[in-house]
Design a binder for these strands. Structure first.
Lengths: 213, 213, 213, 213
DNA sequence: CATGAATGAGTATTCATTCAT
DNA sequence: AATGAATGAATACTCATTCAT
C-alpha cells in the first residue's frame, strides 16, 4: 500500500509536470506549432510516459485548457453584502482584468479560439467555464443589488453582458490581437467611464450626478 | 495586346480561384492545418502556379484576410445626415452584424487571432482593417451627433468602443467560441437594450423616457 | 536576305547574352544551384527562347565551359626564340597564373570537377582543352630549349608536368579549396624557387650557382 | 545497462549504415544530386531516423568527408629514423597515392571542391585535414633529413609543397578530371623521376650521380 | 512501468521544362 | 519567332505516435 501510494504520487507529480510544460509550450507556440517531444523534454519525461497520461496531443491540450479555466474563479466573495453599485462595478472589473492578464488567460483564449472549428465541444466547454462562470458570478451580484434596491429592476442577464462587453472591448479585445498589449495607465479612469454608462441606465440616481466623465 | 490581355485575364481568374480555395481551406482547417497542396488542388492549379501568385502560405493567408477585411466597410453612408441617435445606433449595429456574419468575418477573426503570436504584424494590420475601420466610422457618426446637439458632448473614442463592446459581447463573442452560432431571434430587441444603455448616458434626454426595456 | 541576316545576328546576340548570363550564374552558384529561369532573366530572354538555343541546362553548361576553355590559350608567343630557361620558366608561370586567376578559370574548374561523375566526356574534353593545351604549349618551349642546348636532354612530357605541378600546388590547389584565395605577395619569389628546383635537375649549369634561394 | 548498451549498439550500427549509404550516394551523385530519402532507403532507415543522427544533409556530408579524411593519416611512422632521402621520397609518395586511390579520396575531393562556394568552412576544414595533415607529415620528415645532414638546409615548407605538387600533377590531377583514372604501370618510374628533380636541388650530392632518368 | 529510438505520412517550397497564344 | 504562365516531380525536413527492450 505504501508502495502503491508512492507510485500514485509519483505518477501524479509527473502528470502535473507534463501539464505545466504543456501549458508553457502551448502558450509559447500555439497548438499546432507546439511539439509533443519538446513538452515531454521540458517535463523530464519520455514521450511514451506522456502518452500514458494523455491519449493524444489534443487531449493534452484539453487538459491544459480545463486546468487553466478552473483558475478563473468566482468574484462574488470580493464584495461585502452591502457594497454599493459603483464600487461593485469597479471591484469586479479590476478582479476580472487581474485574472485575465495575470494568468495568461488572454493567450489561452487565443489558442482555444483557434481550435474552435476542430474541437467545437472543447471550445464550448471552455467558453462556459471561462466566460459563463464569470457571467453568472456578475449576475448574482447584480441581482443582489436589484433586490437591495440599489439598482433599478431589470434583466440582469443582459445587463451583466453589456457591462462585461464594455470592459472586454477596452482591454481584452486589444490583448487578443496583440500579444504584447498591457493594461494602460488610464485603466482605472476607463473602467470608471464604463461604470458611468452602466449606472446611467441601471442606477437609481438617474441624474448621473457624481459622474466623473 | 490580345495576347497580353488574354494572359492577364487567365492569370487573374486563376488568382481568384486560388483565393477562393484558400479561403475555404483556411476557414475549414485554420492556418496551420490547411495544406497548400490541397488549396492548389481545389483551385485546379499546380502548387507551382500557386507560388507564382503568392510567395508563401503566409502571404496567401494575408491576401485572403485582407480580401475579407476589405468587405468590412464604412457604414456612415447608411445614415442620413439628420438620423437621430437611436436610429443611428440601431442601423449601425445591424450593418455591423450583417457584415460580420455574412462574410465569414467571425471565422477569419478566429484564424487571425490564432496567428497573433506567430504573425503579430499581420494580426495588427487585420485588427486595424477590421476593427479600426469600423471604429472610426462609428466615431465619425457620434461626432456628428454631438455637433448637431443630438448627443451630449463627450469622449466619442471611448463611447464608440463602449457601444461596440456591448454589441460584440452579445453576438460576436459567442460566435467566436461557437462556429455554429447564428444571430438569435431577439437580436433586434437586444440591440435596442444596448441602445438604451448608451443613450441613458450620452443621449440628451436623460430621463430615459421612451425606453423599451 | 537582309532580313535573314538581321535575324541571324539578333539570334546570335541573344545566344551570346545567354552564355554570358549563364557563365555568371554558374560561377556564382555552381551547376545545380544555378536556376535556368534566373539565367534567362539576366539575359533578358524568355525561358522558351533559352531552350531554343540550348536543349537543356547541361548543354548550356557545356557551352559555357567550352567557351571559357577556349580563352585559355597558348603561351609560346610570349617568348623570344632565344629566351633563356629561367626567364622562360618565370614568364610562362606568370602567364599561366594570370589566365588562371583573371578569367575565373579556378571557379570554372571547380564546377567542371563537380560534374565529372555525371558528365565524364565533358570533363575529359575540358581537361584536354584547359590542361592539355597548356601542357603542350609548355612542352614545345622545353623541347626548343633542349634543342638549343640550353637544357639537358630529357623527357619533356614529364618535366613539363613536374614544372606545372609545382606551380599548381603553390597557387592553384589552394584556390580550388578557397574561393577567396588570391595570389600572395611573394608569388614571384615562390615561382623563382620552383624554377631553381626545375633547373637544378634540367638546367645545364648543375652547380646551381645564381640560385636565389 | 543491458538496455542502454543494446540501444547504443543498435544506434551505432544504424549510424554506420547511414554513413555507408551516404558515402555511396554522395560519391555517385555529388552533394546536390544525392537525395536524403534515397540515402535513408539504402541504409534501411527512415528519413526521420537519419535526421536523428545528422541534423542536416550538410552535416551528413561533413561526417562522410571527415570519416574519409581521417583515413588519410600521418606517414612518418612508415620510415626508419635513418631512411635515406630517396627512399623517404619514394615511400611517402607510394603511401600518399595508396590512401588517395584506395579510399575514394579523389572522388570525395571532387565533391568537396564542388561545395567550396556554398560551404567554404567545410571545404577549408577538409582541405586542412586532407592536404594539411599530409603536408605537415612530409615536412617533418624533411626537417629530420635536413637535421641529419642528409638534405641541404632549406625552406622545407616550400619544398614539401613542390614535392607533393609534382606527385599530384602526375596522378591526382588526372584522377580529378576522370573518375576512371587508375595509377599507371609506370607509376614507380615516374615517382623516381620526381625524386630526381627534388634531390637535384635539395640533396647533398649535387652531381646527381645515381639518377635513374 | 518507463524508455527513447524509430517511423510513415506529411509539410512548404523549388525548378527544369513545355505549350497555348 | 517569342513569350511567360503553367506544371509535375522532386526536395529537405518535421512530428505525433508506437514498440522492442
Amino acid at each position: 500500500m505504501g508502495l502503491e501510494e508512492y507510485r500514485r504520487s509519483v505518477s501524479e507529480s509527473k502528470r502535473a509536470s507534463i501539464l505545466r510544460a504543456a501549458r508553457a509550450a502551448f502558450l509559447k507556440d500555439g497548438f499546432s506549432r507546439a511539439a509533443v517531444a519538446e513538452i515531454a523534454n521540458m517535463a523530464d519525461v519520455s514521450t511514451a510516459t506522456l502518452y500514458k497520461h494523455f491519449d493524444s496531443k489534443e487531449e493534452l491540450f484539453a487538459a491544459v485548457a480545463k486546468d487553466a479555466a478552473m483558475s478563473v474563479g468566482d468574484y462574488s466573495h470580493l464584495l461585502d453584502p452591502d457594497t454599493a453599485p459603483r464600487d461593485a462595478f469597479l471591484t469586479l472589473s479590476r478582479a476580472y482584468l487581474a485574472t485575465q492578464f495575470e494568468n495568461h488567460v488572454n493567450d489561452l483564449m487565443r489558442i482555444i479560439i483557434a481550435e474552435v472549428p476542430s474541437h467545437p465541444e472543447l471550445a464550448r466547454e471552455m467558453m462556459d467555464l471561462i466566460v459563463g462562470r464569470r457571467h453568472r458570478s456578475l449576475q448574482n451580484v447584480l441581482d443582489r443589488l436589484v433586490a437591495q434596491g440599489m439598482l433599478r429592476p431589470h434583466d440582469t442577464t443582459l445587463s451583466a453582458k453589456l457591462a462585461s462587453g464594455m470592459i472586454k472591448e477596452l482591454f481584452v479585445w486589444p490583448a487578443l490581437f496583440n500579444a504584447d498589449f498591457r493594461l494602460p495607465e488610464d485603466t482605472e479612469a476607463k473602467i470608471d467611464m464604463a461604470a458611468n454608462v452602466f449606472l446611467a441606465r441601471y442606477g437609481i440616481d438617474t441624474t448621473g450626478q457624481g459622474m466623473t466623465g
